[in-house]
Simulated scan of single mutants.
Amino acid sequence: MKLSVEISMYPLKDEYIPAIQNFIDRLNQHPQLRVITNTMSTQVFGDYDQLMDVLKQEMRASYEQFGRAIFVCKFIDGDLAPENQDV
């Protein structure tokens, strides 16, 4: 089963950019996932189980390294990556 996730991270500190960039960089280290980042959010596409495992791991790593943050996520089944959509 494929999964599409839109995720936004809001670190609860003044210096928020390093925490966000670190999270995105770590997501990009997982070759089994497709990661698309824009100014508002990051979209991640992949196998349901693999994607959920990566999010679990990387969100925990963010909390441990940078402290409190809010993650706002939207989940939808299927691969909705831009080149996979019918126009």
Rank of each mutant, 00 (worst) to 15 (best):
I20F: 12
I70P: 08
Y48F: 05
K74C: 12
T39N: 12
I76A: 06
P11Y: 11
V5C: 07
D77L: 11
F66K: 03
T39P: 09
S62C: 10
V35N: 08
A19F: 01
D77Q: 06
N84E: 08
R60T: 14
Q29H: 08
N84R: 09
V35W: 03
G46N: 10
L51F: 04
V44F: 05
S8T: 07
F75M: 09
Q85C: 10
M40L: 14
F23Y: 05
S41Q: 01
Q43D: 01
K2H: 13
Q21C: 10
F23S: 00
D25K: 09
I17W: 11
P31A: 08
N22G: 02
Y16H: 14
N28Q: 08
T37Q: 11
Y10S: 06
Y16W: 15
A61R: 12
N22R: 05
Y10L: 07
I24F: 09
A61S: 12
D53M: 09
Q29I: 10
Y16S: 15
Y63V: 00
R68E: 11
T42W: 02
L27M: 11
Q29K: 07
I70S: 14
E6V: 02
Y63I: 01
G46R: 06
T37I: 09
R34E: 04
F71G: 01
I17G: 11
E83H: 07
K13M: 15
D14S: 10
S8N: 04
E64K: 13
Q21A: 13
I70N: 12
R68K: 14
S8G: 03
K2N: 15
F23A: 01
L3A: 07
I70Q: 10
F23I: 02
I24Q: 06
R26S: 14
E6F: 02
N84F: 03
C73A: 14
V72L: 14
M59E: 04
Q50P: 10
K13G: 15
M9A: 10
P18L: 11
Y10I: 03
Q21S: 11
R68F: 15
N84C: 08
D53N: 11
T37S: 13
Q43T: 01
R26T: 15
L55C: 00
P82L: 03
L55G: 01
E15L: 06
Q32E: 10
V35R: 05
V72Q: 14
Y10T: 02
N38Q: 08
F71I: 00
H30G: 07
M9E: 08
